[in-house]
Design a protein around this nucleic acid. Structure first.
Lengths: 141, 141
DNA sequence: TATTGTTATACTCTATAACTATA
DNA sequence: TATAGTTATAGAGTATAACAATA
């Protein structure tokens, strides 16, 4: 079992998750915050929209946006068209933090995959892309 | 970020973990219990030994062995050489459960990797084996 | 009545600290 | 004193339920 592909994927996935978390420590955020910042960089989205796009649930999203607001990376703005909704908008420093995050995450990924050659890294991306499809991940929640 | 190898590995690893958990539901255990049963199938080991071999900490191991005892899959036996230690021994039904678990986990893994051909599955195992090395996982806790 | 955002709550997982019994 | 096992407890993460405001 310990050498099975599935077990290794679970184990490495967990370790990589922690590593990505730590790679963003200096910015006070985690990868989930980066995913939100990426979505709102170009699009105008409510929290509910963000839930749909990221798969997080509403209460988690409240906490994530709370964090982004507290850090000055984003603001909640009442939607003009539907006053129930609050549009989440990045601040200037939020966009800076986003771009720094992407650099840090790229660096962390390079470190994680460094045992493999560039060709092998490409192969791995191809294989994992075919496993981690949206519909598969949805039906294995 | 959403298409990066690292993110996909984290995401798929998490989904696979849940899938493996559910695959063992009928036996009332989880993969960690299987790892313990595998270790004690042939060797005589104390809980501390099992901690060293699996990386779980002492308190987690207490809970895991509690579960195995409650289900009748293992027993704690006082060590004759060191009365502080308690050797964990599998029962007959524990060995049966172990062999069933291994079948269920193999089946679950086959399902998870089914989008890939046999050759590709072999490739993936090779690549992930080189990433998820014991020392790398140890230094990324 | 349904939806958006929110709060409060419960539940799991994991890690820490403290206790016992042995060495 | 150090180690093995245990218990109690606290922390983070996540999910559920209930509520206010709006559609």
């Amino acid at each position: 079992m310990e050498t099975s592909t599935g077990y290794l994927l679970v184990k490495f996935g967990g370790a990589a998750g922690g590593y990505f978390d730590r790679s963003l420590q200096s910015l006070g955020i985690r990868p989930r915050h980066v995913r939100v910042l990426e979505k709102i960089r170009t699009d105008t989205l409510s929290q509910q929209d963000l839930c749909r796009l990221t798969g997080m649930d509403r209460t988690t999203m409240v906490a994530v946006v709370d964090d982004l607001e507290r850090l000055g990376y984003a603001r909640r703005v009442p939607s003009p068209t539907d006053r129930r909704k609050r549009v989440v908008t990045p601040t200037e420093s939020g966009l800076v933090a986003l771009s720094e995050s992407e650099t840090l995450l790229r660096k962390a990924e390079a470190a994680l995959l460094s045992p493999l050659s560039a060709t092998e890294q490409k192969q791995l991306n191809d294989l994992v892309s075919r496993l981690a499809t949206p519909d598969l991940l949805a039906c294995l929640p």
